[in-house]
Write a protein that binds this DNA or RNA. Structure first.
Lengths: 191, 191
DNA sequence: ACCAGTGATGACAGTCGCTGTCATCAAGGA
DNA sequence: TCCTTGATGACAGCGACTGTCATCACTGGT
């Protein structure tokens, strides 16, 4: 006889998958936390032990992206200008998302369909910008250059990500990021 | 005898003032909607008839700002570049906030102190950016220039607004906006 | 003067997100 | 063997928000 563990392992992972599946099927509002928990075979209380709130289950992985970006900014050559460092960091996320394209699409569709989820996504992006600004200051960049570079960089990422997700020509994310940054440079130079 | 009206007029305004007062005093989380309603002399249900949710009471006036900006973008001279049009619109909000400096400070302090309120503010800003992008497209600006100009413009506004609120030298908002835009131009040119 | 419609409100029940608290029980040492 | 350490379930409770119905001043037409 296998010694049966008291609980199935990875309840957190099961909760995450159940949530995305149910949100995609019936929508965020029409899915209760109790249903997600039941689908994952745990109690509602356990859901809230793993995720601070119902929305957070879709954003638990955002720490990875943050680490990726910050590390890349820090690793950029000393000679790189602030915007060059941020640009390099953004482009370096290409493979990360390229590997998870289907997941990213489904998740993004769920988020786009719900205002509360869009709110949460925005604050994650803002946190990202703030962390990026910190990393730039560590490189010796002063204010307001650090904040503005970070904010502009995130704006570029958002625009590029949306274009990538909906791009019928399936251009690579890194490439779309490069093109979007060039477009930003063009409009700011015109002012 | 005065013919006593059945209800005091302007319950919406009273709710708004009561909410800001209580939020400033005890914080957003430690204030219940029932308390706000009682303070304004109405029922909790009436609060939710005027405001979609507890947070929205602090953002009801944001439509004014939106109108101000969109009108200014549309009114910008045809010869103005997209970023020039946005810059002019942003600067034109100076007097609007200058008149309400104390209110803006108190409101901003309440918002900054609470994560949920920061989320709501971000989505208002994003909506603003989106509306601004629409106005630019009406001027014939193509994508992604319209979105990027709008996003960058809002980023400038956010950075400038925060500097203005905390500025010990009390420089004017319009001036801080101009300086922040110049700083953005500098960092993007460097890339 | 009457009377039907309108609109803002109160009252009340109900759902759901979320929290605090306590008990349970497997696993891993000392 | 005993004690500690998680991870979990069970349950009560608060507060945000909604649906629904009743109330009643006001308004406009007759």
């Amino acid at each position: 006889m296998e010694p049966v563990a008291r609980w199935e392992p990875d309840s957190r992972g099961r909760l995450g998958r159940a949530a995305l599946e149910l949100f995609a099927e019936r929508g965020f509002d029409d899915t209760t936390v109790e249903e997600i928990a039941a689908h994952a075979g745990v109690s509602e209380r356990t859901f809230f032990r793993h995720f601070a709130d119902k929305r957070e289950v879709l954003f638990a992985g955002s720490g990875n992206l943050q680490t990726l970006l910050v590390d890349a900014v820090i690793a950029a050559p000393r000679t790189a200008s602030p915007m060059e460092a941020v640009a390099a960091a953004l482009e370096s996320t290409g493979p990360f998302f390229e590997e998870r394209r289907d997941f990213a699409r489904q998740r993004q569709a769920v988020i786009t369909a719900n205002a509360e989820l869009r709110e949460r996504e925005l604050i994650k992006m803002a946190t990202l910008a703030s962390t990026l600004a910190d990393a730039l200051r560590q490189r010796g960049v002063k204010e307001p250059a650090a904040s503005l570079t970070a904010e502009a960089g995130i704006a570029v990422f958002r625009v590029a990500f949306e274009r990538w997700i909906t791009d019928s020509q399936r251009r690579g994310l890194s490439r779309v990021i490069r093109e979007s940054l060039a477009a930003l440079r063009a409009v700011t130079a015109e002012a």
